[in-house]
């Protein structure tokens, strides 16, 4: 029984580590910031989940498992927000390579980034954006 649990824990830890490695490789290889954000924020969700499961199977203490659970909850609650904030800032700053986009419905809608800046209290980002684009 213990051996079986250890085997599952081993598999989870290795799979999680491999996913983290793929995130690192993608970070180096992907062409622009938005693509890299996918690699930087996402494989770690499943990768971290697997590592946590692996740890839980090895530790087998209720106190440790609840702490691991907290790590997972906070990670899953905060990772999307961080990814969104960086992605949004990157798009507005023109750090997105348009030649790699099949379609950009945000620009085509014509409303979102600039109008969003105008409607919210402008924080000076508008000027730098138009400067970069022009």
């Amino acid at each position: 029984m213990t051996a079986a649990l250890d085997a599952v824990a081993w598999a989870c830890l290795v799979a999680g580590a491999l996913l983290s490695l793929s995130a690192g490789v993608a970070l180096l290889r992907f062409p622009d910031l938005l693509s890299r954000m996918h690699a930087a924020t996402k494989p770690q969700v499943l990768g971290l989940l697997l590592v946590l499961i692996g740890c839980a199977l090895r530790l087998r203490e209720l106190v440790d498992i609840t702490t691991l659970l907290l790590v997972l909850v906070f990670q899953m609650a905060t990772a999307p927000v961080a990814a969104h904030m960086v992605g949004r800032a990157a798009y507005r700053a023109g750090q997105c390579r348009n030649d790699l986009l099949v379609t950009d419905e945000l620009r085509r809608s014509g409303s979102a980034p600039v109008a969003g800046l105008r409607s919210s209290q402008s924080d000076g980002a508008g000027a730098s954006e138009t400067g970069r684009r022009g």
Binding site: P31, S35, L46, C96, D104
Partner: peptide, 23 residues
């Protein structure tokens, strides 16, 4: 599924993934 897809994209050398912004 998508974790594996992104991982595969990461290791597909010589291929630049295209993307889209969809409303």
């Amino acid at each position: 599924v998508s974790s594996v897809q992104v991982a595969v994209l990461a290791f597909r050398f010589g291929h630049i993934p295209r993307s889209a912004i969809i409303a």
